[in-house]
Structures are given as structure tokens and as C-alpha cells.
Simulated assay, not measured.
Amino acid sequence: MALWHFLLLVFISLSRGDARVITLKNRCNTTIWPGFRATTFVSSHSEEWAGGFELKPGASANLQTPVIWIGYIWARYGCSFNPSGHGFCFSGDCGGELACSKENSPVEPATFARLNMNDITGDDTYKLDVINGFNLPISIVPNGPDSSLCETIECVPQDLSNTCPRELQVRNEGHIVACRSGCLAFHKPELCCIGEYANKRVCNHTKYSIAFKNTCPIADTHPNERFVYTVCDTSPNYLIIFC
């Protein structure tokens, strides 16, 4: 990070008030293990959370963040961990660890909620990312004072058997647990926007990314959409709803 960028982030942090709160709410009918990673220079979580934890159906948990927080959140499920925090999740796993670290990226496909709280402009920007596929529905809901001025966004496919093409389905014991992107499923340059297709002018939407867009119109479904965010300038808290 350039020195001027670092100093600007520090200035914004000192001038924009107290810490913010991200509330995670599990509306799924199964236990999930939210994972989260921060990409800023500041700590992203309290020590007891340490990058992941269990969240039972109907339960909520608050993540208190610094004023500046840039990172992403996703859901893991079908998990089993021993008392030391080692185990496995059949969807969204991060290296078989309860605490997702920078060294263990989440195994895709997974639905990502990406938030930049007090970014370089001083505003919040956020989006949902299913470029490499999705597993559980997620909504980002601005919460608290002045939150009504900011947009709620959601990706809530209800039935993967109807919304996910058969060749993209990820199954566990006969059940569909996630939906891969065309790139993740077939590793072809024209699906991944790599090699001779790295130029956005020649890497177009495919039938797979279009199917994702039909399911989640507000979410990023194609590499050309990576820099499209929803903007909020009132610094609310956020509610992340799973299912």
C-alpha cells in the first residue's frame, strides 16, 4: 500500500467516529459457519471470532469492525471441527480450519458479500460476488441511523435444482450443495477471461454467467463486473442475512 493511501485511510478513520457493527443473521434451516477475511491493514475481528465461528439456525452475532474495514464474508456449511478447530466443510471450506486465515482461501463456489467500509473516497461500497459460483443465499442490508438512504442487495436463489445447470451442480451425498461457474467447472479460457480472452472487449457473458445473472441480477456474475459496487455515503451498520 502506498504511503499516501495509508495516511489517507488513517485520516478517514480518525475523522469518521466510532467503530461499526456488522450483524450476521442465520435464517437457514441448518447451522452455518460464517467465514470472513479482511484485506485492510487494520484488524478485522475480535480475538474470540478469529476468522470463523458456528452460527445456529435463527441465531445472530455482531462483528465489531474498525471504522475502516475492507473484506468479505461467506457461509460455510456441512462442517465438522474437533476441539482444536480442525476439520472440514463440504461447502465454503477454508483449509479445514474453523479460523479462516489469509493463508487459507475459501474453496469456491461460495457466495461472497464484499464490503469496503470507508474506502478511498470516504464512502461505503458493497456488492455480492458469484463470479465463481454460489452456495447459500446472502443479503446485505444497511442497518441503523440513515440506513434507509442506502440500497439493500440480495442473491437469494431458493432452489438450486431449478436455478443451477446440471453440469455446474456440486453434490454431496446426492444433494446439491453449491453451483459452480462455467470457469470453475470447465477451466476454459473463454469462460475464465484468461489468455487470449483476458481483454474485456473479447470476453463476453456466456450462457452460464447469464443464468447466474437471471438468478441474482444485482450480483457480479462475470469477471468484467469485478469493479461494480453499490455506494452508500451515510456510514450505517450492516446486516448480513444468510438464506
Results as ranks from 00 to 15, higher is better:
residue 4 W to D: 11
residue 12 I to P: 00
residue 13 S to G: 13
residue 15 S to Y: 08
residue 15 S to Q: 13
residue 16 R to Y: 11
residue 17 G to W: 01
residue 17 G to R: 12
residue 18 D to N: 07
residue 19 A to F: 02
residue 22 I to Y: 00
residue 22 I to C: 01
residue 23 T to E: 14
residue 25 K to S: 08
residue 26 N to G: 09
residue 30 T to I: 08
residue 32 I to D: 00
residue 32 I to A: 05
residue 41 F to M: 10
residue 47 E to D: 12
residue 49 W to L: 05
residue 54 E to C: 03
residue 55 L to W: 01
residue 61 A to Q: 11
residue 70 I to P: 10
residue 73 I to A: 01
residue 75 A to Q: 05
residue 76 R to P: 01
residue 79 C to V: 05
residue 81 F to K: 04
residue 84 S to F: 05
residue 85 G to W: 08
residue 90 F to N: 15
residue 91 S to G: 11
residue 92 G to E: 09
residue 93 D to S: 08
residue 94 C to M: 08
residue 97 E to F: 01
residue 97 E to W: 04
residue 100 C to H: 07
residue 100 C to M: 14
residue 101 S to I: 00
residue 102 K to C: 04
residue 105 S to D: 15
residue 107 V to T: 15
residue 113 A to N: 02
residue 115 L to E: 03
residue 123 D to W: 08
residue 125 T to E: 00
residue 133 G to Q: 08
residue 135 N to M: 03
residue 138 I to G: 12
residue 144 G to N: 05
residue 145 P to S: 11
residue 151 E to R: 15
residue 153 I to Q: 01
residue 159 D to V: 07
residue 163 T to N: 09
residue 167 E to H: 10
residue 174 G to V: 04
residue 177 V to R: 14
residue 180 R to Y: 13
residue 180 R to G: 07
residue 183 C to E: 10
residue 186 F to H: 10
residue 196 E to V: 08
residue 198 A to F: 12
residue 199 N to A: 14
residue 202 V to Y: 15
residue 204 N to R: 14
residue 205 H to V: 03
residue 209 S to A: 00
residue 213 K to L: 10
residue 215 T to S: 07
residue 216 C to H: 00
residue 216 C to R: 09
residue 220 D to G: 05
residue 221 T to N: 08
residue 226 R to G: 01
residue 228 V to K: 15
residue 237 N to R: 10
residue 240 I to G: 01
residue 240 I to H: 11
residue 241 I to R: 06
